[in-house]
Design a protein around this nucleic acid. Structure first.
Lengths: 358, 358
DNA sequence: TTGAAAGCGCTAACAC
DNA sequence: GTGTTAGCGCTTTCAA
């Protein structure tokens, strides 16, 4: 049976389609009796307004496009849950896509979302400062808000934390605990401006504390082969006593591999993650990490976008607070490491910055 | 600047809109030179076909609606990732909604998805056997495939595991380990037919082994208050020595609360979860659980739906294999429990069913 | 308060 | 191989 249209309703109710439209849209100026007839017809026919027809006419789809790297990382899943919450108030629905951290997929997915004529977009891209597709969105004046991507010279609207300060916070905390040889395990830096900002803050703070340049190992975001990487690092002389991982999933995998290699965490090496995924507190050892408020971040991004869609001019970046969560994966530098060099480490003091002030 | 339409492209290229449409849709029977002119015009104008117009004309949106309880549980996040993978091949996009386990939200969200004229739906509902909204979908002949919901007398297409057999598998394994007093912590049974099926299999197998009726505690799916529940259970005489939780998130929370109460896992009580979320193997203690292949489940649901959309008649339910994953949260029954009754437990043997044969 | 009619952007007959 | 045209379902002037 053909789906009922407004025209069918009109005929059944003995009115015109214009009146049906008015009733559906709760417009004023409809005789209550007429409205009742229309409602009766709607119920009788099981009529459901066709949003496609409406979109075509009104040039507004009530759709928000969402693009994130992957739902398999809880940090993004939680943010999307937050976005869904945030846009529901405005009566919007979510058109979803995942890029799997691939830049071509990023452009392709956004193109697809645009074909559906989404009213706006919420995106986590590889690099907010260097993105052809964002340039295109700017040119076409298509409203969007970034999530997680750092604010910067690009002046693009985003909701994020201060990744650089957070990276520095981790380095300073490690220094306080007596660590002198630091390392960072990160997803490929070109694929993540967040990871880059975290690394920058981390390296800068290490330098400021008079430490040697932290070791840096870049791995693919998807299915990273950590075993050879970590085995290599810890086979070399003077290995790091602390590793900062650019996200929690990586940190969890790192701890697993280290343990498998017979390297004690945090006895021989401390591990700190980033994101603060909920499960971290239940791990063994519990995961030390920088917590960012993902659900709130998603909600805020949604709110910002709706504001923009509501007519407000370009919205400013929002920097949400982050915090270092202590965990059992983080401990003091070993007194006698694999290289026994730690005896020469002088005590170091560093500013007590645990939480950013947004 | 107004968005370019096919008409603009036609004028720029000096052809008709019909030709533009043919070029866009890679139709045969277009002179290569003409096609080149059209492509040039498309590039010049930055034209992007309007999917809304197309949908209206073709009565097909190339949209799949997805409704799940929440993305905060990795079991669903992974499935959605799988769905996204699965529908991408067919050129479909995902319209996403979360019900937060609330039945009203379920109906409301599906109604919304239908307004967008999705071509089909992939859903996890509270109860597949008793759902007004599914009745409606059946009546309206709107293609859908359930995910996770058990197959049953309702004869609705679904992709799932044999939840009842899996529940029995857990009970039998517990019996093998000498447990005689079993308990189950579940999300509210009316809100989850999966949890009900798992409970049924669990209770049946316990009965078959001659055990007393397992204790059952139902808690809300969202932010369950486990502390008073568990404190109550373990303050009573003869508390269970093993708890089966209806999902991994609940199991993780349960272990946390038990530990906080000073009850050793698995020393005093064993805990087994359900879902097999990836992180489970990194927990402390590692989580014993029934693994279901979530990503594959999502992919399969997508494939089944596409098949249905491709013209095939009603698709049959698909039962994917499950497996019991051992973990440190599961151990033998304590020799001398809090009640010292275990000495009278006779040795029990049970069938060696570890994996279903789908 | 209600109706008639135009038209949003596209595709698909059908004609040439 | 290409153009003309009707119309998908809806909203929205404009008239009555």
């Amino acid at each position: 049976m053909r789906r009922a249209t407004a025209r069918d309703v009109a005929e059944t109710a003995g009115v015109s389609v214009a009146t049906v439209s008015r009733v559906i849209n709760a417009a004023t100026g409809v005789n209550p009796e007429t409205a009742a007839k229309v409602h009766a017809a709607i119920a009788e026919l099981g009529y459901r307004p066709n949003g496609v027809g409406r979109s075509l006419k009104t040039a507004s789809s009530r759709l928000i496009g969402v693009l994130i790297p992957t739902l398999s990382n809880p940090v993004f899943a939680e943010a999307v849950d937050g976005i869904a919450e945030g846009v529901a108030d405005g009566g919007y629905s979510l058109l979803f896509a995942a890029s799997d951290y691939r830049r071509e997929a990023e452009s392709r997915s956004i193109e697809t979302l645009l074909r559906y004529r989404v009213d706006g977009l919420i995106l986590t891209v590889a690099d907010a400062a260097d993105s052809r597709i964002l340039d295109l969105l700017d040119t076409a004046e298509i409203p969007y808000v970034l999530a997680y991507n750092p604010a910067g010279a690009h002046r693009r609207p985003t909701v994020t934390v201060d990744n650089r300060a957070a990276g520095a916070l981790v380095a300073n905390r490690l220094v306080e605990l007596g660590h002198r040889r630091l390392g960072m395990i990160a997803g490929r830096l070109p694929d993540s401006d967040r990871a880059r900002a975290r690394h920058q803050g981390f390296a800068e703070a290490a330098a400021a504390a008079g430490l040697p340049l932290p070791l840096l190992a870049e791995v693919p975001f998807t299915r990273p082969e950590l075993e050879p990487v970590l085995a290599g690092i810890f086979a070399a002389p003077d290995p790091p006593t602390a590793l900062f991982c650019s996200n929690d999933m990586l940190a969890i995998a790192t701890i697993g591999v280290l343990t498998g290699l017979g390297i004690a965490v945090p006895g021989e090496v401390s591990v700190v993650g980033f994101d603060g995924i909920a499960i971290g507190t239940h791990l063994h050892p519990t995961l030390a990490t920088v917590v960012q408020p993902s659900r709130e971040l998603g909600r805020t991004a949604a709110r910002q976008l709706l504001r923009r869609l509501g007519g407000e001019a370009a919205v400013a970046p929002v920097i949400l607070p982050h915090a270092l969560r202590h965990g059992a994966s983080l401990g003091p530098a070993p007194k006698s490491g694999r290289s026994g060099a730690s005896a020469s480490v002088p005590p170091v003091s560093s500013p007590e910055i645990r939480t950013s002030t947004p």
